[in-house]
Design a protein around this nucleic acid. Sequence first.
DNA 1: AGATAAAACGAGTAAAGGCTCATATTTTTT
DNA 2: AAAAAATATGAGCCTTTACTCGTTTTATCT
Lengths: 203, 203
Amino acid sequence: MLRQPPLQPRKQATQARSARTVENILEAAARILEGLGFEGYTTNAIAAKAGVSIGSLYQYFPNKDAITIALIKRETARLLADVTMAAAERDWRVAIAKMVEAGVVHQLRRPRLAWLLDVEEGRLREQSSGMQIVNAMHLKLVEVLMKSQIDLREGAVVVAFDMMAITRGMTDMAGTRGETDTGALLNRVLRAVFRYVGIDKED
Amino acid sequence: MLRQPPLQPRKQATQARSARTVENILEAAARILEGLGFEGYTTNAIAAKAGVSIGSLYQYFPNKDAITIALIKRETARLLADVTMAAAERDWRVAIAKMVEAGVVHQLRRPRLAWLLDVEEGRLREQSSGMQIVNAMHLKLVEVLMKSQIDLREGAVVVAFDMMAITRGMTDMAGTRGETDTGALLNRVLRAVFRYVGIDKED
DNA sequence: AGATAAAACGAGTAAAGGCTCATATTTTTT
DNA sequence: AAAAAATATGAGCCTTTACTCGTTTTATCT
């Protein structure tokens, strides 16, 4: 079988090494944020930690914020997937429990990173709009609440925000304090969230 | 009654205008943080907004962080006072309710400022130690919990942190969303906090 | 009024850090 | 093997910004 010579110069598929470079840059950025906070979070430091020249870094990201945004997307992807799965559960109690669990697990995996990225997301929200994850989760949670038998005097929107706020608040605090027992924390968060909406579910 | 001539040149009392300058600087810093976030938070901008030269600013503050620390102290003073008063209440239910109220009111008065100062406090904590307000509040809350009949299986320390986390999480979220009805928010936070510890107190 | 201390001033310095671009290396294609 | 495309390099430009210091203005004291 003869190979057809392409009519147009074939769009060069991305080489494997460039993908590796991008990954290295993102992970270096994550590690610097975790280790040094915003202080040491400079493009030169990121490039150095990634074992890549500063020029290469700017070949893949137009500016520093783009790195942060990509990192947020990367760290957020699993959370969004888990929440979406959870929201599809038949039993709304299970759905809520799993959504809460997704949030807790996400935020306790790399607590400092999650926290710092939240701060950055807040800053970036002002300049470029963009469906943040908070809104995405909120939307799904409201859907679930509508199907539930929870007292929605305050409105599903408000209750959903409150449930997210409780989860985030407790998990942030736990992360700051260095708690690592996800199970224990999850139990407390579930108790707080379910009792808040008037359901005393001890399991 | 004859006035004793002072043996040493009397320590020159601070003039009124210097006190005004310091106040102007702090308020300018607060306003810039509120309006522009960390982006515009530069010493030159602060001095300009305060209507003061950059030289004067550095006459009263050795460096930029000192301004932030002074601002944190200023914003935090009332909160600490309120919490201390609240903790002294006889009835522990009232004590807890008032402590929660103090937190909510504080954080909803200038929400963005409170949030940004929290972030800064976290950053500064790492370098210079110093009794942050979170610890002070926590201490008092633990005391109150000890006198209460609340189920402390998880330990007073953990329960106290959870209560604070719930309060802060919900109020932060409310502030971010632009909620301004303190009363409505306070009701929800009280419900969340009291129900979390197994007390269903509808008032 | 004159002397002294306190407060204010702001041009300028130095360092940090985001980012560019001309060049070099590696990989792919023909 | 040669050409072309993709990828990598890093010295250095340029802006921003924390902070200094020599000078001037204002207030206080005798």
